[in-house]
Design a protein around this nucleic acid. Structure first.
Lengths: 230, 230
DNA sequence: TCTTGTAGGAACGAACCAGTCCGTTACCTT
DNA sequence: AAGGTAACGGACTGGTTCGTTCCTACAAGA
């Protein structure tokens, strides 16, 4: 019953150091194991919510023993919080990578809106997790210290862009950056998250590409109209 | 008929030696009982989601025996669907009661936006239920025949208002009523539902009145800017 | 060499929980 | 007035689920 089992565990090369060389096939890989648990948990929690998620299902999906979940994360709830933190962290990291240098305010806003839209589209699990956490009135997120440190770079950026736009005479004055960012998020988030019930009510598949594309255009136009000086 | 229902059943005290005498005291009241179950279930499902809700908790809250839940509704899931249908029905009924007669297009839109905002504020449970149902990708709503018949009167109204506004030269052309209604809903829905996590992230209580009022103003201004001819 | 951390398997137990059995009683119809 | 049915209740059950326990094994760093 030797454990030659599957192919190699992909040797998650996470850095440069890597002094061990020869032993390519890692039988024990704490980072990989906990990463696998996290990935499986993310999927399960996003799909079923906190109460609906099954720890056994996460173990099966991660192809590890359930015991390992309690080894790395103390409880179902701590695992859930870890998943949340990771998902938010990924978003913030992606936001920081967008390059707005040298763009005029209006162009920058278009890029910002489209980044948000695309990120939401490509990361449906993040949206589900946020929604789940709001059902719990952010009870778990409140516990997290990491989250509070993870400010979005977009809010400050929006502040700067608004200022420049006003100085250039293209944007109206007195817009609140926080509220604006919420509006941008809202127009995409609501659509993507609620498209299931909306599709039933309207009798249209809002997840289909033509409808999705329409939404992107409406989002951009709505925000730009609001920004422009009347 | 002499359906004298409505009368107060209230007294559930059966230990009393009080003779039966007056027939006013109803011990059995199917309508009231199932209404109580529905109300309790609405609260429980909204708070905990479908998986998180406990049938026993619903029974306790409704002050009835759990057996009655299965008497009136066949299962937890059917009860959940009944709750959803009722919540949607209430919304549609309220929408139909708004009077837009004689208003100019722009005023009518303001009224429509504010109605939506106020209704969402006053019915947080509806939002939670919708969110829960979307986690399930509208699996239960799809089963419902009632829902498909419950078209919102607002979509047709928006179509008319847009047309009149365009004819009057105050609105821009080519706006999609469906997308517009989604935008209006989105700006309020997202804020109210996600204010828990957003408050943690921003470090501000977005549920406080000054912030809520700011939101209302932003909503109206955003939509009107989009409507107005550039 | 020894210690600690990583890993798997199997099964348990206690709590929990949706749904049912079985019996009783109020109310309506005839 | 009788009889049937719908409304109700207490207690229970069979299955599930989180978290644990006991056991074995081995990898790697000290």
């Amino acid at each position: 019953m030797t454990r030659s089992s599957e192919a190699e565990p992909a040797t998650l090369s996470k850095g440069k150091g890597e002094g061990r060389s020869a032993k390519a096939l890692r039988l024990r890989d704490p980072k990989l194991t906990s990463a696998r648990i996290l990935a499986a948990a993310k999927s399960e929690f996003a799909r079923k919510g906190l109460a609906g998620a099954r720890v056994d299902a996460i173990a099966t999906r991660a192809k590890i023993n359930k015991r390992m979940i309690y080894h790395y994360f103390k409880s179902k709830e701590e695992l859930y919080l870890a998943v949340l933190e990771e998902a938010y962290g990924d978003l913030r990291r992606a936001e920081r990578l967008v390059d707005f240098a040298g763009r005029e305010p209006e162009d920058a806003f278009v890029a910002l809106i489209e980044f948000t839209w695309n990120y939401y589209r490509q990361n449906p699990e993040l949206l589900r997790l946020i929604v789940t956490e709001n059902i719990h009135q952010a009870r778990y997120l409140k516990r997290s210290k990491k989250i509070r440190e993870m400010h979005s770079p977009f809010v400050a950026l929006i502040g700067e862009l608004l200022e420049r736009g006003v100085r250039q005479g293209v944007f109206r004055d007195g817009i609140d950056p926080n509220q604006l960012y919420i509006s941008i998020a809202a127009l995409g988030f609501y659509y993507l998250n609620n498209r299931w019930t909306l599709s039933v009510i309207y009798g249209v598949d809002l997840g289909a590409e033509p409808e999705m594309e329409k939404r992107r255009v409406v989002m951009v136009e709505t925000i730009l109209s609001y920004l422009r000086r009347p």
